[in-house]
Structures are given as structure tokens and as C-alpha cells.
Amino acid sequence: MRGMARRGMRLTVGLLVGAGTVAVELPFIVLSGIALLCVFVWPRGRRKVLEPVMAVARWLIESARRRLQFGGADFAYGYDDERALKYLAVRWLLGLLGAGVVFAALTGATIVLWASTVWTFTHVEHPVDVAETGVGALFLLFLSLQAVFGVAALEARLARHFLGPTHERELKRRVAELASSRAGVVAAVNDERRRIERDLHDGVQQRLVALGMLLGRAVRSKDEAHAVELLRQAHAESRQALTELREVAWRIYPTVLDEAGLQAALETVAERSAVPVRLTWRLTREPEAAVATVAYFVVSEAVTNAVKHSCAEGITVTVDRNGNILSVRIQDDGWGGANASGSGLFGLARRVAALDGRLRVDSPVGGPTTITAELPCA
């Protein structure tokens, strides 16, 4: 409820600012149209007139872009001069409509406040009239507030239609993103293979070599007590090798993710961490397998990095969903200064990008470090 009220206030302010810019946009469109009409058949003159016209148009559009972002409408921009002028030629109508909606809302709120004040603090001679006026004003306020959201959404759609990239440009951008994410996935797979090889070589393989040497010495030993001691050491090495092999297998892919779901897998990450991890789970159902896998590795890698490098005393993991976006947020109270371009976080960014997601790293020196992954899901 509080978030809805805050968003409504931001949209109302945006509509008021948009209504104010009509005083600049409307004269600009009229004067620009007259100027361009006068030099319509003169190419050189048309170019000279277009330069200052487009300079002002870009300034107005940049103001509109900041205003729309303030209201929560954030999208890619890619427009030419013609589409920019078309947008300004139409936008002032929505500016006036927004001003009317806000005025109606303020009028309704004022009348409701007046009616409630009169009813509470004065003697009402005609209570039915005051009640009818208050109810009508309350209804007007309700409709006006709904209209605030409607006009703001309509203005965002108008801006996206005229100022957003064309279908052809959007397809080219999409193809470039897919090519980049595919290359990133291949690189991430190769990095993961190298890491697995390094873990096996430096850990399990060394344990098995030591185990073989101990067994060989036990076989060759002529002292029974010494042979028993060597066998005891070999048994300890075999148990350690098995533990490390399980660790490697867990890092490759945890079976609990398929058997019990993402929540159980993240709870296991929290239990295995050397630093206390508090998990907040706000989903009503498990996400699909591909999304759950990426979310798991984001949390696992972020927790591992925090334990190794940040000297954190506590880590918080929050899994939430906003519409079709799964949000995974990991925050630690460590030293901060994490390098977003480092191999670990860069590999996570490539994993997230493969699902058309977005990874943000906020790690000022002194902390805290916050890693947020936003993953599209059905």
C-alpha cells in the first residue's frame, strides 16, 4: 500500500511537470511548423532551420525522458528527427489531459476535506446535502486517482512508440544480445570446466596419490604395527578424498536442486556456509528449472566470495518475485570493494545474461556489498 501511494505521488508530480512543459512544447511546435513550412521547398534553408529546431526538440525530449524515469517508465531510446517531432506534436495533448486529471483529483480531495471538516466541527443545517457532496467528491477523487495511473501509462506508451527503437533496430539489438550471451555461455562453460579440473587436480587427485603411497608403504612394511598405522592414515585420506569429491560434485550441480527445489538448495548453502546466512524466501511456488539453477549459482558464488574475501560477519539472502521477474539479493556486512569485472562475478553476469536477466553489483569501499540478480520467469 505504501509503495502504491509513493508511486502515485511520483506519477502525480510527473503529470504536473508534464503539464507545465506544455507551455513550452505547444509554442515550439507551432513556431517550428511555421518555420519549416516557409523553407519547405528550399533544402539548404530547411537544414539551417532544422538544426536549432532539433536542438530544442532534443532538450525537450531529454526532459521528458527524465520525467518518465522518475515515474518508473524506463526503456531503451532510439529515434530520428521525424519521430521526435511527431512525439512533441502529440505529447502536449496528454500534458493537458494530465493537468485536468490532477486538477480533478485536487478538487475532489479539497471538497472531501471541506465536507469532513464541516461535518466534524460545525453544526450542519443540511446534513443530506453535505453528505451527498462529500460522497460525490470522494467518487471524483477515486476516479481521478485511477486516471492518474491511466494517463501516466498512456504517456509512457506514447513515448515508447515514438522514441523507442524501431522494430528493425530492436531485432538487430536482440540478435547482438543473443550472440553475445551465447559466446558468454560458451566461455562460462569453459571456465567451469577449468575450475573443475583445477579442483580435481589440486584436491581429489592429490588425496588419491597420497592414498596410493600410504597403501604401497603398508604393503611393503614388515612391521605389523607400522603397517596398521599406515592403513589408518590411508583410511583417513580416503574419507577426506570422498569429502572433497562430494564438494566438487556439489559445486558442479547439487542434486537437492532437482529433488527438493531452489529453497531447499539455498537452505543447504546457508547451512554449509562458515558465515551465518539468513535466508528470506518470499515465493509462493518454485521457479522453473533453468531460472532456479541460475539463481542457485548466483547465491552460491556470492556467498562463497563473501566468506573468502569480505571478512563478513553476516550475509542476508532474499528471494522475491515482482511480476515476471525473479529477484535474488545477496548482501553482506563485509569490507566491500568487490570487483564486478572479476572472474567470479563476471561469470555470474554471463550466466544471468544467458536468461536475458540483469546482474547489479553495489560494493562501495567499507561495505556493504549488495549483489542483485533479476531473472525473467514465466
Rank of each mutant, 00 (worst) to 15 (best):
K222P: 06
A225Y: 03
A289Y: 07
G347F: 03
A188Q: 14
P165D: 05
K48H: 13
T12S: 14
G71C: 15
K222N: 11
E313N: 14
L141K: 05
A104W: 00
L279C: 09
V299Y: 01
V352A: 07
G347V: 00
L31H: 09
S343P: 01
R360A: 11
A265C: 05
T293E: 14
D223W: 11
F40C: 08
V128Q: 02
G347D: 05
V299A: 07
G212H: 12
V56T: 15
K222V: 14
L15Y: 05
A353S: 14
G164P: 10
R173N: 11
A105E: 06
S341C: 03
Y296M: 01
V175E: 13
D333S: 09
L31F: 11
T372L: 15
L178W: 11
P364D: 08
R329K: 12
F142C: 13
S144W: 09
V317D: 06
D80P: 06
E247I: 01
V151R: 06
A274D: 12
S116D: 12
T369F: 04
G347Y: 01
M213R: 15
T370E: 12
E197S: 13
A249M: 01
R169P: 00
N324Q: 15
L106T: 05
E168K: 10
D80R: 09
H235L: 06
R10I: 06
V41L: 14
R282D: 15
G342Q: 08
T21F: 05
A89F: 02
A84E: 01
V303W: 02
C38W: 12
A159F: 04
V124W: 02
G71F: 01
A312M: 08
L266P: 02
V186I: 14
G216R: 12
M213Y: 10
H235Y: 02
I196D: 00
I330M: 13
F346N: 14
R83E: 10
A236N: 09
F346Y: 11
A73K: 04
R46D: 00
A302H: 03
L257Q: 01
N305F: 01
F162H: 15
Q263A: 10
Y87L: 01
S144V: 06
D191E: 15
V90G: 03
C38P: 00
V128L: 08
R65P: 03
L143D: 05
G18M: 03
A295Q: 10
R278Y: 07
Y253Q: 03
G164M: 06
V17S: 02
D333C: 08
L242D: 07
H226V: 10
L96G: 09
E82F: 10
V39M: 03
Q69N: 14
V53A: 08
R193K: 10
A19N: 06
A131G: 04
R169L: 13
A264H: 08
V17Y: 00
F139N: 08
S327G: 11
F40K: 09
